[in-house]
Computed example of a mutant assay.
Amino acid sequence: MSINNHFISGLGRKTLLHKGRSQLPRLIVIHYSVTNTVAEAAMALNHEKLSYHILIEKDGTAFQTRGFNETAAHPGLSNWKSEKDIGLGNSVAQGSVGICLMNKGYAYDKTLPQSASAPGKLIYNPNDQSMQRWEKYPQAQINACHQIASDVIAAYPITEVVGHHDVAIMGKFDPGPLYDFSPLNALLPSPKLLGLKTTVDSKDGFLNLREEPNAQSTVLQNLANGAPVHVRSVTYGSRVACIQPSPAKRKRYLTAWASVSLGDDNQHAGFVHMGGLKSTPLTPTLAAFL
């Protein structure tokens, strides 16, 4: 398939109510729909005035809702490897392509045969007992997604392919642990973009690297002052966990915790409290609350 005037040739079209703005895509974000069909997804999206660029049925039939040069309302509040100025309203919607696969995730239909689901643990919240089994993605659907994403990668300066659960950690947990990003990221230039590089600078002389983004979580490692880290994504949480006191009412709140990689390996190593870092990608106003 080829992309002409920002649309994939031969792909079906779906009209969604949400209208976007002009953009240059640099990131692909993969989602699941929490519905079984594109018709169900389109109804839910129009009700909420949300959108994706691509919707893919379980049998691999795909639809495009807008040109890739127009934003879609798919990631909500989110951030990914920003160098600075992450605020309460930050979103990767500008500059990203949203691809949504029809799948119910960990809320899969329990009447499905056992073979239609499989065990899996998210790297960000592996101990949540409600998220230990997930609906599988049929091969035809995976093939369609891979082909479409490959076309987008060939046409635009895409730096990375990630999941919604990467850019909105502890927000919406899609596409889940059964989606393999490695074939698509293998098509991209290497090494991949790194997040803000900083160092540990804690009054205690060390910083705990934790399994989950909270002070009660298992400590994976003690990072000594001066240890280098890259901030991948600042996590989200409940209102009481918000980094800023008395925030305005919203669906998702920035916290003081961030997913980090150690050195230049570009992999999620664990979570740290950003109060123990020399610098953060937060706005100066938010950083003052750490």
Rank of each mutant, 00 (worst) to 15 (best):
A149W: 03
K172D: 14
L193Y: 02
V152P: 02
T199Q: 13
V152E: 02
D166R: 04
I158R: 00
R133F: 06
G176V: 10
L188C: 06
C145V: 13
P175S: 09
T198L: 06
V152Q: 00
H146C: 13
D166L: 00
A149M: 04
W134R: 01
P177W: 04
G195P: 02
P175V: 10
F181Q: 01
M131K: 15
G171L: 08
W134M: 12
Y179S: 03
I169Q: 03
L122G: 12
S150R: 10
S190N: 09
K121Y: 06
M170E: 14
S150K: 13
L196P: 01
N185S: 11
W134F: 11
P177N: 06
P138M: 05
V167S: 04
I148T: 04
F173C: 15
K121Q: 15
K197C: 12
P183L: 12
E160L: 01
W134K: 07
Q141M: 08
I123E: 14
N143P: 06
C145Q: 08
K192Y: 12
D180W: 09
K121C: 13
Y137C: 03
A140S: 15
N127Y: 10
A186T: 06
A155H: 10
L187N: 08
S190K: 15
S182N: 08
D166H: 12
L196H: 07
H165T: 12
D151W: 07
C145W: 10
V161M: 00
F181G: 00
P157T: 12
Q129A: 14
Y156W: 10
A149E: 02
N125R: 12
P175D: 02
A149Y: 01
Q129M: 14
M170C: 14
Y156D: 02
K136C: 09
N143H: 13
G176C: 11
G120C: 11
P138W: 07
L196C: 04
N185A: 05
I169E: 04
V162I: 14
L122E: 12
P157I: 06
N185D: 01
